[in-house]
Amino acid sequence: MEQLLGQFSLGLFILQAVIFVGLVLLLKKFAWKPILDAVNEREEGIKNALQSAEQARQEMANLKSDNEKLLADARAERDTLLKEAREIKEKMINDAKADAQAQGEKMIAQAKAAIEGEKNAAMAELKSQVSALSLEIAEKLLRDELSNKEAQSKLVEKMLGDSKLN
């Protein structure tokens, strides 16, 4: 220990301290600060580049999924359009069929009604004619009766014979 202290040189200690502090300050200004700044800047640059690359990748993936979604949507829309068209077509056919049927039925019903009307009219006329004829016959019979019995019966027979012909 004594030898250790004996060797200790105060001058060397002072010079070392002064030179070292000077070196620290000098290097700080001319070396360490620019070096660390440059390295930091570079690291930031690398970090940013990686980040933006990752972002771009993400965007690409998003874009791709968007595209797929769009495609799928388009396909689905086409399908629904086709389906709708088919449905419309069928509906149109069915409607047309139903219309035609309804029209036909209506026409038939009208025809039937007309026929019925004609028939009823004919029947009514026939009835009126029959009653007129009957009245005529009855008139004639009554006249004949008043004149000739024989002739009356003959007339009746003849009348009946006529009506049969009718």
């Binding site: 070292f20 001319f30 620019p34 070096i35």
Partner: peptide, 20 residues
């Protein structure tokens, strides 16, 4: 010490400059 100080200064100054 002076030699090493000089060496360090030259060395790290050149490193600092090489970045630019």
């Amino acid at each position: 010490i002076l030699v090493v100080a000089f060496l360090m200064f030259v060395l790290f100054r050149s490193l600092a400059n090489s970045y630019k």
